[in-house]
Simulated scan of single mutants.
Amino acid sequence: MKFEKSCGAIVYRKTQNQIDLLLIKNRYGGHWSFPKGHVEGAETEMQTALREVKEETGLDISIQDGFRQAVEYFPKPNVRKQVVYFLGEAQSVEFKMQEEEISRIIWTDIRKAYHMVTFKNDKNLILVAGKRLR
């Protein structure tokens, strides 16, 4: 069994009346999710998450203390993948899309985001993040 590890972030911004999440649409799979990517070299989980968010969206984020959620799944036979997510507040709202991997990026209300994400793991992450942010 091969093991893969990625890290990413649930990126948010607070406006006057709501919490928005940043969603990306994967160019190849066509699914809505969060920015993430493989750990490189001796990076820590948090360094990977910060780098991947910056590479995929152009955003700098501030990681919130005490939020680390890991999900595991099997993307293909004999491959177990773990993805560690942090909760990160966007330090700006203007994003710059990495066009090689991503076809769209949007800010959307957290309630809409729940219905837009493709995978059950992502829906669960939104519920946990929402409780933390409220």
Rank of each mutant, 00 (worst) to 15 (best):
F67G: 04
T15N: 11
Q91F: 00
A113S: 09
K96A: 11
I110A: 09
F67I: 09
Y12H: 08
I24V: 13
R111A: 11
K5C: 09
I105Q: 00
N17I: 08
G88P: 00
M116S: 09
K123E: 13
V93G: 04
M116L: 15
V71D: 09
W32M: 04
I102N: 06
D60V: 04
L23H: 03
I63M: 07
T57M: 02
S103T: 13
H115N: 13
A113T: 03
H115R: 12
S33L: 08
E45F: 12
P75H: 04
R68M: 12
E72Q: 14
K131D: 11
V39P: 01
K2C: 04
D20I: 02
E99I: 11
G37P: 00
D60G: 02
F67E: 07
Y73L: 06
K131F: 07
F34E: 05
K120E: 15
D109M: 06
Q18N: 13
H31K: 13
T48Y: 03
E94F: 04
H115E: 14
P75S: 05
R68Y: 08
K81G: 03
N26V: 01
R80Q: 14
A129W: 06
F3N: 13
L59Y: 02
K36T: 09
G37F: 01
K36S: 14
F34R: 04
T48F: 01
T108Y: 00
E89Q: 12
R68N: 10
F74L: 12
I63V: 13
S33N: 10
Y12K: 08
A49R: 06
V79C: 10
Q47V: 08
I61R: 01
Y85T: 07
R13M: 10
L50P: 01
G30F: 02
V79L: 13
I102M: 03
R104E: 15
A113R: 03
E43P: 00
M1G: 14
L50I: 13
R13T: 15
G29W: 09
N78R: 15
W107P: 01
F119C: 05
G41M: 07
V93K: 11
R13D: 07
E101W: 12
I19P: 02
H115V: 08
T44V: 06
K5H: 13
R13G: 00
S103E: 14
D122R: 11
D20C: 08
N124L: 15
E40I: 14
D122Q: 08
F95E: 05
Q64E: 14
V11I: 10
F67L: 05
G88F: 02
L87Y: 04
F3Q: 14
Q18S: 14
L133C: 06
E72T: 15
N78D: 15
H38P: 11
A42T: 12
N124T: 13
S62M: 10
T44Q: 07
E89F: 01
E94S: 12
I105N: 00
K123Y: 00
I19F: 01
T108A: 08
K131A: 11
G8M: 01
Y114N: 05
K5G: 04
V39Q: 11
V79M: 10
V84C: 08
E72N: 12
G30R: 02
L23E: 05
N121V: 11
S62V: 08
P75A: 07
A90L: 00
T15R: 12
K112H: 10
R80S: 14
V79D: 05
Y114F: 15
